[in-house]
Design a protein around this nucleic acid. Structure first.
Lengths: 218, 218
DNA sequence: GTAAGATTCAAACATACGTTTGACCGGGAG
DNA sequence: CTCCCGGTCAAACGTATGTTTGAATCTTAC
């Protein structure tokens, strides 16, 4: 077995198991057993369990983030600023496309990404935050331009709502009788999420919104 | 130290540590150390680590769920069906009120609840699903009546979006320079979430929305 | 006061964990 | 062929894990 082969088998197995059982719930022995390699191979090729996780995450996040930034910058470059829907697409679509293109690994990587942010392990979601800080900044910047009437803090709030919905569907932990988000159809899935999020994101500032009363849309 | 004292100290410590480090990331020794009790006390009072978790979750979820059901049934009993905003309040507010009333434990229990659904450990989020199935059913039923033009599947989708946003803010894992959701002000926090979610939830059915060619379950 | 039961305790159990080690294998270079 | 070196391997290291045990201590009721 060539070296690169071993490395990839380990990455595939770790990706699968970290996604399914979480970082703390997966032992190196689980990984090497599924990969069919020797226990010591992980430390030889990656250094430690934590470094293995970093490699696993970077493999699936970096390519998607490159696309995200490209799409967001294109959207932001439109005269008059980006359309909110395009920003949402730039945030959501790349990861779903990547997942679909990777075939059987697709479900693993969406779940992995979705769970990253809520991982209890400190180093894990520190790593997650680092990986997404650039994209997050670009997203929030575009949003701020697209919705100039909104206070910066409200933009941050709505953006967090987006992340909440996105990660929840990616993680796909709560079973449903329906296939609410179809990973085989990245464009359709994205448009469904956009159709829910776009109106909420671009709603007018809520100066008139009274706490404790329903005066909003009836 | 009386027995009930020991039980509660264990529950408090476990609640805190499960919330902060997750189920797999917390050892029984961590719990008993923080509680200042003997290691064997956990098995004496609860039986196993898993049973301890069940007790921890039930202690914070059951009272809130009772309030949720009460509020939802009251809302559903309104002539003409429940208002969407009231259903949202019934879902969100009880847990936040409970958290505020419990003082320093508040942040622990919101984080615990928020993380429950995305916990990788199989038994944990099985337990979570069980605890929320009744409330979920009542919520979706009210939504279905409030939005009769929406296909059942679309109602389920929007409801999942709500859960995504709710759990994300409860978990509070991604740091933000702003205090987007203030736990000391349950009503204010609830209204902020409602103001984002209500318009999205009650948007008209998207007949005109083109999907990527998937006509979902009929 | 004393017996009975409930609770606590230190210690041990067996297993699992992340990591390290040193021998071993195979193939390209001299 | 021999040397060498990247890669693999079985085995071990020390520690941490969930759980069990049996004696010690406390609480309660008579």
């Amino acid at each position: 077995m060539v070296a690169e082969d071993t490395r990839e088998r380990i990455l595939d197995a770790a990706e699968h198991l970290f996604a399914e059982r979480g970082f703390d719930g997966t032992s190196i022995r689980d990984v090497t057993a599924e990969a069919g390699v020797n226990l010591a191979a992980v430390h030889y090729h990656f250094g430690s369990k934590e470094d293995l996780l970093r490699s696993v995450l970077e493999r699936v996040v970096l390519p998607a983030n490159a696309l995200r930034l490209e799409m967001m910058r294109a959207a932001n470059a439109t005269p008059g600023g980006a359309a909110v829907a395009d920003l949402l697409r730039a945030f959501i679509l790349p990861e779903l496309r990547l997942a679909r293109d990777l075939g059987p690994r697709g479900q693993c990587i969406t779940r992995l990404i979705g769970r990253m942010f809520s991982e209890p392990n400190e180093v894990v979601h520190q790593l997650a935050s680092d990986l997404f800080s650039e994209v997050g900044g670009c997203f929030i910047e575009g949003l701020h331009q697209a919705l100039p009437d909104l206070p910066e803090e409200e933009v941050a709030f709505r953006m967090q709502c987006v992340v909440g919905v996105f990660t929840f569907f990616m993680a796909d932990t709560v079973p449903s009788p329906w296939k609410l988000i179809d990973l085989d159809d990245p464009e359709g899935a994205t448009e469904r999420l956009v159709s829910f999020l776009e109106p909420a994101l671009s709603a007018p500032p809520a100066h008139t919104r009274q706490r404790g009363g329903v005066d909003s849309v009836a």
